[in-house]
């Protein structure tokens, strides 16, 4: 369970990344890291549907999950998996609650150095701190306003041992996907679908 907790922590990065970036307004200025960063703000409550594909060497078929993410309030996120099984994760403060088949486990989400660095990166994106971001990640920004991609490469050797890159893509109006590339060909790709405010 101890190790599992580390894995569970990763979800927070994805959730944060998704929700924070999703609410970004339309990119209308010339494409630059500053432009992207300027638009990465979010305010709760927000909700977004997802279709996530996970690929790794243990699976013959990719694991495809669907469900939704909720940004309930500041510091409180929820990921609900609806298919192929039902499971919910509530990330609040530095803890994560896993609800699996009616049984809730609470796990600590104290930041590891790697996770802190990753979250620090997300927070830097939110805060528009290009300088801070550059101290954690090397980045490559490509594309145009309507179809851009921000690829973040961890600079820390320790973090790089776990994650090759974090790629955020957008279509001009919103974030469309977040992809984590891990070691040994493993990757997680989460496509996002904006949920209308009326659903919230």
């Amino acid at each position: 369970m101890r190790k599992m907790n580390n894995s569970l922590r990763n979800i927070r990065v994805i959730l944060l990344s998704v929700l924070y970036m999703l609410a970004g307004p339309v990119l209308s200025e010339p494409l630059s890291i500053e432009t992207v960063l300027d638009r990465t703000t979010i305010s709760p409550p927000s909700k977004v549907g997802f279709r996530e594909v996970r690929h790794n060497q243990m699976l013959k078929d990719d694991l495809v999950m669907t469900g939704y993410l909720e940004y309930l309030e500041a510091g409180s996120l929820r990921k609900v998996v609806e298919t192929p099984f039902e499971e919910a994760y509530l990330i609040r403060s530095d803890r994560i609650e896993v609800d699996r088949q009616g049984v809730t486990r609470t796990l600590s989400l104290r930041k590891s150095r790697t996770l802190r660095t990753m979250l620090g990166g997300v927070e830097a994106i939110l805060a528009g701190e290009a300088e801070h971001l550059a101290s954690i990640f090397d980045y490559e920004l490509s594309g145009v306003d309507e179809d851009w991609s921000l690829r973040l490469l961890p600079r820390s050797r320790k973090m790089a041992k776990q994650m090759t890159s974090l790629t955020v893509t957008g279509d001009g109006d919103s974030i469309t996907a977040i992809r984590f590339d891990l070691k040994d060909g493993e990757w997680h790709n989460m496509e996002l679908v904006r949920v209308p405010d009326s659903v919230l």
């Binding site: 190790k3 599992m4 580390n6 894995s7 922590r9 990763n10 979800i11 996970r54 790794n56 891990l182």
Partner: peptide, 26 residues
């Protein structure tokens, strides 16, 4: 499989492959 929906990484996969019951963690 449900754990894979949450986490990942080489070490975790190696652990699952070696010990599907996660006895070693206990």
């Amino acid at each position: 499989l449900q754990d894979l929906a949450v986490g990942g990484g080489t070490a975790m996969l190696a652990l699952f492959a070696r010990d599907p019951f996660l006895v070693t963690l206990d």
